[in-house]
Design a protein around this nucleic acid. Structure first.
Lengths: 239, 239
DNA sequence: GGCCGGAGTTGATCCCGGTCAAGACCCCTG
DNA sequence: CAGGGGTCTTGACCGGGATCAACTCCGGCC
């Protein structure tokens, strides 16, 4: 039986990030070049927000966060969700202040890497430089791939794609890909997918009715990953 | 009287990229660390395409290109337009092959920076490293800001925002911001904005009818930048 | 326990933008 | 210059998702 992903307290992955370069590896080396501090961000609190000075990159060690893009006239858009192993704040490189919000959706633990020092460290740890630019490039690819989904898929298929993406990311961290708890509300999913929350709700209900998934509030089980996959226009990537 | 932006032959900006760090500056230094080659890409030709090995970054020196994201089931989405001073190919950093297409919309001249050498050069030219990561971060910000527009603005306002964005980029290169020639077709604009080409056409006609712009096929004049701006939900950035 | 507010679901209706189709216009090529 | 294909525009109609609204469910709190 799967164990659903329900960390009520701050904790990292059950398995040490299988099949991924361990985050811990750089850390000792890294600490020789800068002061890495740990931060706890409680659910609902900001890790950083629009207008605050940019002085560090952040590595998510545990928890779950979202990033929101803001416009001057008050519009808002969720641009992504971040979990263990994800880098945050990279979009502000080259700026004096952050231009978006990062909000914890559950209590989270973050490693703070002061920014100018990171650049210097890159000169001494070439591997870090590779890791950093790769992280930036992955960010671009992620965003672009969602642009494609939003630009070309109807509502229900976007939701299916969203569930599969979440599942595969959880799986890479060692959590169950078939049974998990959504950490964000319908409205956040809707904003991210350029939909309204009622539409997301209807899409989930319909996918359940088709027998592809089961949903109860925030608890999700993927019952037929194959069908969910070709519904989302992507070959099944998990399992 | 404004001179419209109609380079029929390959040429760079009329003014040497005013108010911007000159691209030329790095070049001599750069050539000491790698072989920079010039490439001509004719209108309609690919600079690189999905599946081809990734071995270089590209700096646009003249011309105009688009990037397209592709899905395995044949869907396609224009993710951006590139002009003089823009870096291309950065989204493939960390991969062996490109994952999107880059197509010239007019004859273009590109400087090719072989990729592993660029990384090494970063170790010797710290400024290059800053420039590279800044370019990557700007890419992310650009994408996110379009996600916001697509997720929160109705069709006509997206088109208005598109015109203003194009205008401000042309202005930074020394071209007229009020009078220019679109280098892409309606279908490309539509794909980029997650619309259909008929909708873009109607939006342009309506903006013209409102007196904000004038359009004749691909020739565009911005008649009322102020109104266009608050229609697009952004304060006027040009002029 | 009872109250309350936020989150989620579901239904009814509306409308923006998609779809389908026709025609205009332009450029290319023979 | 005529023909033809691609691009753009415009109209008529349709439909997916937005909007508005009612209701349920759950958790928190007095």
């Amino acid at each position: 039986m799967d164990t659903p992903f329900v960390p009520s307290t701050i904790e990292a992955s059950p398995h040490p990030a299988a099949g991924e370069q361990p985050l811990e590896l750089d850390m000792e080396e890294l600490q020789r070049h800068m002061v890495v501090t740990r931060r706890i961000v409680r659910a609902g609190q900001y890790l950083y927000r629009n207008g605050q000075p940019f002085h560090a990159l952040y590595l998510v060690h545990a928890g779950f966060l979202k990033t929101c893009e803001l416009s001057e006239d008050g519009r808002e858009q969720v641009t992504g969700f971040r979990m263990r192993g994800d880098m945050m704040g990279v979009e502000s490189i080259g700026l004096a202040v952050h231009t978006c919000d990062a909000v914890a959706l559950e209590d989270s633990q973050i490693w703070e890497l002061p920014y100018p020092p990171v650049l210097n460290a890159c000169l001494h740890i070439p591997e870090l430089q590779v890791r950093l630019s790769t992280a930036l490039a992955e960010e671009i690819r992620r965003d672009r791939s969602w642009m494609l989904a939003i630009g070309t898929l109807p509502a229900e298929q976007r939701v299916a794609a969203f569930l599969l993406d979440l599942a595969s990311r959880l799986a890479r961290l060692g959590f169950s890909a078939r049974h998990f708890i959504l950490r964000m509300g319908r409205a956040d999913i809707a904003s991210f997918l350029a939909l309204k929350h009622e539409t997301v709700s209807r899409a989930l209900s319909h996918l359940e009715q088709l027998g592809y998934i089961s949903v109860l509030r925030r608890e999700v089980k993927l019952l037929d990953v194959r069908k969910l996959g070709n519904c989302a226009g992507m070959p099944c990537t998990i399992q």
